[in-house]
């Protein structure tokens, strides 16, 4: 089994991303960040209920992988930190915000909420409220893609906490056994809620665990769009040419709490230090991409300003759309219980 250590992009010069695509990714990552910040604000205005899991710091993982997929055709599953994945699949910010506000115009008609965003027409098969939940489902989706003789791939995102759930290993074993086209993306943001990797597993080499199920994999820097893109490109090539699964452990960090519960009151200080967060913030994937674009003269200051304005406008528009959208009609309570 091939195992490689974390690969740092050589001088940030991967070269495999066209400038136009880089700019697109930058815009998407900025949209995700601004969207999450606004959602946080709206949560505190009681416009959004339930739990809230922000993606701040992990934007490169949604942008660098989903941008390379064939949509529709390829299928994406993830857990409850899912706003970014929906936006990366092309689900309009309006439909995401409306879902978060429980409106009829939301991507799940207001029935799903933050943890259950979905957009099957764009290949997004949904967020999942259960830590290891999407992995057995990905086994089935991958099975269906192979059964129908497609060359499509199922991409399944999940966190380091999921690697300690039994169902994840049952499913990975079967994906390895049946040789299914599944790309596992382990978003290792170092903490399962408040429990660090060191405090939750006897074997922190996650790639080794994938290898144990007959699945090749590697570790990559999840804070760099280049590294993410490059690793995903290799992985997707492997899957599309061999038909077999691949596992990517993406080292990353969330800049905010696990959820609203440890964010609000800086509850995260019980399990990690402000110094650690400051260290990781220096590797902010959006900032480093911006620096790269400036250094290479790929985007003018004016263009940056325009993108910033556009993104803010898009988020603002999604909020006014959602706020002016109707709630689901009461007589729809029993709709969609069955197909």
């Amino acid at each position: 089994m091939a195992r490689t250590a974390a690969k740092q992009p050589e001088n940030n010069e991967v070269g495999s991303i066209a400038p136009a695509d880089l700019i697109k990714s930058y815009r998407l990552m900025l949209l995700i960040r601004r969207f999450e910040e606004s959602v946080y604000q709206k949560f505190h205005e009681n416009k959004i209920g339930g739990y809230l899991h922000r993606y701040d710091g992990q934007e490169a993982l949604a942008a660098g992988i989903i941008s390379q997929l064939h949509l529709p055709g390829d299928m994406i599953l993830c857990t409850y930190r899912d706003h970014a994945h929906a936006l990366a699949c092309g689900t309009p910010a309006r439909a995401v915000m409306a879902e978060l506000m429980g409106r009829a115009t939301g991507c799940a008609g207001g029935k799903g909420g933050s943890m259950h965003l979905i957009d099957p027409e764009r290949g997004f098969m949904g967020g999942d409220g259960i830590v290891g939940g999407p992995v057995p489902v990905a086994l089935g989706v991958g099975f269906a893609l192979k059964y129908r003789n497609t060359s499509n791939v199922c991409v399944c995102y999940f966190g380091d906490g999921a690697m300690n759930q039994g169902g994840v290993h049952e499913a990975m074993n079967m994906v390895g056994l049946y040789k299914l086209p599944v790309l596992f993306i382990l978003e290792n943001n170092q903490f399962a809620m408040g429990t660090s990797v060191q405090r939750s597993t006897g074997q922190p080499d996650f790639v080794l665990k994938a290898n144990a199920h007959g699945i090749q994999g590697e570790k990559a820097d999840g804070m760099s769009l280049f590294s993410v893109h490059d690793a995903a490109e290799r992985a997707l090539h492997h899957i599309r040419t061999t038909g077999e699964a691949y596992f990517l452990e993406m080292d990353c960090y969330r800049f905010v709490g696990h959820g609203i519960g440890d964010d609000n009151t800086k509850g995260w200080t019980t399990y990690r230090s402000e110094e650690d967060i400051e260290q990781w913030r220096k590797r902010d994937p959006i900032h480093s991409l911006k620096d790269y674009l400036i250094e290479r003269n790929l985007l003018s200051a004016q263009k940056f300003e325009e993108i910033d304005q556009e993104v803010q406008e898009e988020v603002k528009d999604s909020i006014s759309f959602a706020e002016s959208s109707p709630e689901p009609p009461l007589d729809s309570l029993y709709d969609h219980l069955y197909s």
């Binding site: 086994l139 089935g140 989706v141 169902g167 079967m174």
Partner: peptide, 13 residues
């Protein structure tokens, strides 16, 4: 768990 996930995911797809 694998069997149930295999069937559920394949049905969703």
């Amino acid at each position: 768990i694998g069997i149930a996930g295999l069937a559920t995911g394949a049905a969703m797809a």
